[in-house]
Design a protein around this nucleic acid. Structure first.
Lengths: 206, 206
DNA sequence: ATATTTGTTAACCAAATGGTTAAACCGCAT
DNA sequence: ATGCGGTTTAACCATTTGGTTAACAAATAT
């Protein structure tokens, strides 16, 4: 029977929390099993006891991270609001969420670039974001004359680029714009609405 | 005196070429000195003969990479064309350039995130991009009523976000938009003008 | 020619690292 | 109390990895 349930559950979770922290800030290649163990306050052998190998532990962390990102993207893709509403909601929600998980975008982008095969597995998951509905919505609003003609893929990439980049390029942007941590935060905060307005200004018919 | 100049020069350069290739595709943590040596077709000891340590070899590669990026940014910041012209030129030039060096943006962003202190050294270099002139230009055009009011920092970030992100998020975008290598290339090619129009549409007064 | 400096290599080294093992530990059922 | 299953640890192991060394080769200066 399972016993010491509270205890083992706790250890397994502690490991995942520690692994998240280390993998997300250092990446697969930079992460050290010993550091994860120290971080979780346990013996290194426990990592292998619960998750066989570094690779599998990494995948547990990565899949969890991606499972946080995917719903954010689906939010804009699969609801029935107008394009304008979608963009406003997405920009606000996504930025708010990422300010709480600032390592997430970088981690995912970095690891997807490290191993291109990796995303193939993700595509098979149910819940992997699908653009079909968004494309239809865009086409409808173009036909109705609400927005200017634009390729839906391009629009989608523009939306996520404007929202994600401040988290990917933070060190670069901070240096280029001479901002300290505090003013950078204000800067990103402001983008919660600025970015939506910027996009809508561009595509909306007057 | 210096001798065997052609030969040593050649080896040193071969090392840098190989190091560029390996560091840019695998990052500092993922790169292996042995792989660089193999790639350059020389003995591993040569790497240390010419560049003392992995760290110094990495910095040589990184500084060179950044010295390719910086002029791209300066191009938009320090000329006297109108904002509209600047954006058009930058978008075309930057995308054209990066299609030839697709690993560059990712490499720089990734390594700046790995070591935040790193950018401090870069800031000291002459030629580190400076936004002052761009800010003035933007303010002038706003005052003249040519473009809508917008914070110059936000505009700048939007411009580079839209241009850089397709190279950072390539695996993700490819998967989300169901594009293969060829159609992704077409997609990015199209952005050479699409992105400029998108931005200008947003900020230009009619 | 030959001494000297520079370039190159194979062999080696110490530290780090992912992973394993055997024994100890702990809560519980009998 | 004893046995048993899951849990935890210290010690250990093999491999990888950045880096060094000592000897050798090649080019140049004298």
């Amino acid at each position: 029977m399972q016993m010491a349930k509270s205890k083992d559950k706790n250890t397994e979770e502690q490991i995942l929390i520690a692994a998240k922290s280390v993998f997300q800030s250092k990446g697969m290649n930079g992460a050290r099993m010993q550091e994860i163990a120290d971080n979780a306050g346990i013996n290194k052998a426990m990592l292998h006891y619960y998750y066989r190998s570094k690779q599998l532990l990494f995948e547990a962390v990565f899949n969890h991270a991606f499972s946080l990102l995917a719903p954010q993207l689906n939010a804009i893709l699969n609801d029935d609001a107008s394009i304008e509403e979608k963009i406003k909601n997405f920009t606000l929600n996504y930025t708010t969420f990422m300010m709480k998980h600032p390592y997430l975008p970088n981690f995912i982008i970095q690891e997807l670039n490290r191993n291109e095969d990796f995303i193939e597995k993700l595509k098979e998951n149910t819940g992997f974001p699908n653009l079909e509905k968004f494309k239809i919505n865009v086409q409808e609003e173009i036909n109705q004359g609400l927005i200017k003609p634009i390729d839906a893929d391009q629009l989608f990439v523009n939306i996520i680029a404007l929202n994600i980049f401040p988290f990917l390029g933070k060190p670069l942007i901070k240096a280029l714009t001479n901002k300290d941590e505090k003013s950078y935060k204000t800067f990103v905060e402001s983008r919660k609405s600025d970015v939506a307005n910027f996009i809508i200004n561009s595509i909306k018919n007057t």
